[in-house]
Amino acid sequence: MSKRRPYVRPMAGWWRKNPFFVEYMIHEGTALFVAAYALILLTGLVYLAHGEAAWNVWLEGLKNPWYIAFHWLALAAMCYHTYTWFKIMPRTMPPVIVGGKRLPDFAITGSGLAVAVTASLAMFGLVWGMAR
């Protein structure tokens, strides 16, 4: 019996044809940076548990230009993740009814972004205060 080779519709690059899907792939792709950053932190934690000498090796390693470049990219990806996370939120959470009217999308996205900015400033202030 000859082997059949059924036709499989090629799907390489399907998302590049439509800007909507390009954006979708970019915002899904931020997960790669979230994972990579978490793994860098985990590595740091392992080094920290191994004592001061090990920790300093890890800390010095962060000054490597490749790591710096990665963190600039990761910062951009994280900011984009924050933006899309709250942009999608009106569709991922149950509708909020205020005074018999549905809360508009921009109010949900806007308050999400405002909370993110506040949390970031508070975090930075906390670290700055503790380190001083």
Partner: peptide, 18 residues
């Protein structure tokens, strides 16, 4: 990660090493 991801990356990956 939406709330704290960017600032953490900035602190541990950029502000402290640089």
């Amino acid at each position: 990660s939406a709330l704290l991801g960017p600032i953490l990356v900035f602190i541990t990956g950029l502000a402290v090493p640089l």
